[in-house]
């Protein structure tokens, strides 16, 4: 028996919209800890890891660990039928082949339920160890989104370099080149608008802008984004989900062949 009641249902709507173009089908793993997901894109270049902790739900019942395979496009179709202010409850039975989404309007005058077919997904789970990163950049998520969008009109790849000067985003294309440098900026009253650079050593890595632009679909989930870089690891782009958990995107770099 599974029953998860999420008062801020819009969070689930946003999460699915953020990952559905990257991942087609995924297993949602439900345990006492919370609802989690790990999936790679079809070309195995990017990986998404989601955690919604049980404490973030108003009611959380998960009698035993369960993995539910869902088509994210179908899930998106169903969740789009929920209002932004609706409370969403996810219900499932052990061993069942469907899941039910119940939507309640804030004043309880409209209650809908949508039953979705589950699917068997043979997905591989990768172990992601804790790592020390050469540099961690925290910046406004809207700024990061703007940079990725702007640069993708000029080039296909971006070099992200962190030095003591700041974080530099560089691209090159047929029409020319572009460099955007963001310096550390802690002086603002609002911490969400700050750019904070923690650097242990300088790092410079190249990534496909197509993927970074896809990750920025999570921008509405969090005011700030954290970019963790190491020369020998995929970049981690993390959006915190208020009081509940996170959505992390891992992207393998491009290297000189």
């Amino acid at each position: 028996m599974l029953e998860l009641r999420l008062v801020q249902g819009s969070l689930l709507k946003k999460v699915i919209e953020a990952i559905k173009d990257l991942v087609t089908d995924a297993n949602f793993d439900c345990s006492a800890t919370g609802l989690s997901l790990q999936a790679m894109d079809s070309s195995h270049v990017a990986l998404v890891a989601l955690l919604l902790r049980s404490e973030g739900f108003e009611h959380y019942r998960c009698d035993r660990n369960i993995s539910m395979g869902m088509n994210l496009n179908n899930m998106s179709k169903m969740l789009k039928c929920a209002g932004n202010d609706d409370i969403i409850t996810i219900k499932g039975d052990d061993g069942g082949d469907t899941i039910t989404f119940m939507f309640e309007s804030p004043n309880q005058d409209k209650i809908s339920d949508f039953e979705m077919k589950l699917m068997d997904i043979d997905s591989e789970h990768l172990g992601i160890p804790e790592a020390e990163y050469h540099a961690i950049v925290k910046m406004p998520s809207s700024e990061f989104s703007r940079i990725c969008k702007d640069l993708s009109s000029i080039g296909d790849t971006v070099v992200i370099s962190v030095t003591k000067e700041g974080v530099k985003f560089t691209t090159r294309g047929d029409i020319g080149t572009a460099n955007i440098v963001c310096r550390q900026n802690k002086t603002i009253d609002k911490p969400d608008e700050a750019t904070i650079i923690e650097m242990n050593e300088p790092v410079s890595l190249t990534f496909a802008l197509r993927y970074l632009n896809s990750f920025t679909k999570a921008t509405s989930l969090s005011e700030s984004v954290t970019i963790s870089l190491s020369s020998d690891l995929p970049v981690v782009i993390e959006y915190k989900i208020a009081d509940m958990g996170y959505i992390r995107f891992y992207l393998a770099p491009k290297i000189e062949d």
Binding site: H44, V45, E124, L126, G127, K254, I255
Partner: peptide, 14 residues
């Protein structure tokens, strides 16, 4: 030539 590498080259299957 710049080549895209796979996420699998970094993390092992569990």
């Amino acid at each position: 030539i710049i080549a895209q590498i796979s996420i699998r080259q970094f993390y092992k299957k569990i």
